[in-house]
């Protein structure tokens, strides 16, 4: 797996990434993705990452990019 930009988050990121990859290949692709069993790990990783983004001062530019996503969502998540 790839590293985190914040070395202090690497360990929990690694655990989350492994959990996700297993879930993706064994459940999601087979249409059995009822629950997200990796959610608790993701929360831990996200707490670590959010702190790191803030400390490095890149949280605002990330938030700005995230705000411009509406059109993409409309295009790629439409019900056909």
């Amino acid at each position: 797996m790839s590293a985190s930009l914040a070395p202090e988050c690497n360990e929990v990121k690694e655990r989350y990434d492994s959990c996700f990859l297993k879930w993706y290949s064994e459940k999601f692709l087979r249409g059995n993705a009822k629950t997200d069993e990796c959610a608790p790990l993701f929360k831990q990783y996200k707490d670590c990452l959010s702190k790191a983004l803030k400390e490095r001062g890149i949280d605002t530019m990330v938030e700005e990019a995230r705000a411009n996503q509406k059109e993409l969502d409309a295009e790629y998540m439409k019900t056909s």
Partner: peptide, 26 residues
């Protein structure tokens, strides 16, 4: 040249079943 890939959010759209992921690539 890609030194880090972080996941910012992840969700499944209940209407379409589409898995949506946001990442930050460094």
């Amino acid at each position: 040249h890609v030194i880090a890939v972080d996941t910012l959010s992840r969700s499944i759209d209940p209407d379409t079943g589409v898995l949506r992921t946001e990442r930050l690539i460094t």
